[in-house]
């Protein structure tokens, strides 16, 4: 067992975990944050994307102990005072949500992109979500949603 201290969605945690636990298992099984999804378990699909110290990572490829000292944002941490994040709102309105299994990761990748680059080009948007696979939409709705989110964030 190993002790880790980290912050998840603004809340500090001090927990004891198995050394061989992946970060996705820590989040889902230990903290009950089931919004983080496992689609492939090998870093290919991006469904388990989270934001770790400002960077998107595949939480299936990060060991739990590596999260020690980090600041993590999962899909559960995007709402503020009961209000949806503009990216979440835009995804809903653009019809970018179908089966939904890629959505937590996709939304977080979009958020991380816009945090770094508030007015990306179409190509930059596509590149920003290129690590997230979706089998339903064909990705154009994500592009539309991201443009919508950019407008909402400008208005904030």
């Amino acid at each position: 067992m190993v002790n880790i201290n980290f912050t998840v969605n603004g809340k500090p945690y001090e927990i004891s975990i198995d050394e061989n636990m992946r970060l996705i298992d820590v989040l889902r099984d230990e903290l009950g944050l089931i919004g983080t999804k496992e689609g492939c378990g090998e870093g290919e699909c991006g469904a388990c994307t989270i934001i770790m110290d400002g960077e998107t990572v595949n939480s299936c490829l990060v060991m739990g102990f590596q999260a020690d000292g980090s600041n993590i944002v999962t899909i559960e941490g995007l709402e503020k005072d009961g209000q949806l994040h503009p990216v979440q709102r835009a995804y809903m309105e653009a019809g970018a949500v179908q089966c939904g299994f890629c959505i937590p990761g996709m939304v977080l990748s979009t958020k991380a992109l816009l945090d770094k680059n508030p007015s990306p080009s179409d190509e930059e948007i596509r590149e920003g979500i290129s690590g997230n696979l979706c089998r339903c939409t064909g990705y154009n709705k994500m592009l539309i949603a991201t443009k919508k989110a950019i407008e909402y964030m400008k208005g904030e």
Partner: peptide, 23 residues
């Protein structure tokens, strides 16, 4: 009309349950 699907909010907030999410 553009209608927002009923399960969209649950899905964008990570609250939508798939079988693996049930303990």
């Amino acid at each position: 009309k553009n209608i927002i699907r009923v399960d969209a909010q649950a899905k964008v907030t990570g609250k939508a349950l798939y079988p693996q999410d049930i303990y």
